[in-house]
């Protein structure tokens, strides 16, 4: 790209805020009542992290993997990439989180057993992604129909994943942070370019996760 320094973030925005939020409305209408299942699965993940029954690592990894694959295909590829050609390159990366999680879970190397400050903060982040995120529309003057729900929309899916990963240990865990963090950065910058007041939320979730990881490293 020539004269790249003359481009602003807004120059890369291909759609209007109205089209962006209508995309969530249409996705919600098309997938309802799947939301009940995804939310129940999200709560089950949190319970599994708290109770840690046998093979909990495998089940958490498989459920998260299923939702990364589903959101990457149904939302990012089938909807978002239609209005933003760049997302056609991002969607497969988002979906790549699914085999990474499944691989980590299947190897039996994932355990959600950290109860340090970062781990507890992670659980708070996960609950916020699960419960608070769908409640945001009226706070930002949008209709309920545009709610972002875990397992249906990418931001809460990435936030819940980061939250529970903060409570995880095992071989591939550091690698598993990369894709959700990258997604939240992209999403936050997109919302910022749209002038949307919600832009700080995905960025805050990513920054809090990064800070928690740094804190854990320092404490070590």
């Amino acid at each position: 790209m020539s004269e790249w320094w003359t481009y602003r973030l807004e120059d890369f925005l291909l759609f209007s805020p109205r089209v962006y939020w209508r995309m969530f409305e249409l996705a919600n209408a098309a997938s309802w009542p799947l939301h009940l299942l995804t939310l129940a699965a999200g709560l089950a993940i949190v319970l599994l992290v708290l109770r840690r029954p046998r093979r909990h690592g495998l089940w958490i990894a498989l459920v998260l993997a299923a939702f990364f694959a589903f959101v990457g295909w149904s939302f990012l590829w089938n909807r978002y990439a239609v209005i933003d050609w760049a997302i056609a390159y991002v969607a497969p990366v988002f979906g790549l989180q699914a085999p990474l999680l499944a691989f980590g879970g299947a190897r039996g190397s994932l355990a959600f057993n950290r109860r340090d400050i970062a781990g507890r903060l992670g659980l708070l982040i996960a609950v916020a992604g699960l419960v608070v995120y769908p409640l945001l529309p009226p706070l930002f003057g949008r209709p309920w129909a545009s709610a972002e729900v875990f397992g249906i929309a990418p931001d809460p899916t990435a936030i819940v994943a980061l939250g529970v990963l903060l409570a995880a240990s095992g071989g591939p865990v550091p690698l598993l942070f990369a894709i959700p963090l990258l997604w939240l950065l992209i999403s936050g910058l997109t919302l910022h370019a749209m002038g949307d007041p919600q832009a700080w939320l995905p960025l805050l979730a990513a920054a809090t996760t990064a800070a928690a990881l740094a804190l854990r490293r320092i404490a070590r």
Binding site: L14, F15, R22, I83
Partner: peptide, 12 residues
Amino acid sequence: WITFNVGDDPVL
């Protein structure tokens, strides 16, 4: 530019 990029949204 931007205005007609409405995807598959039937209303838009």
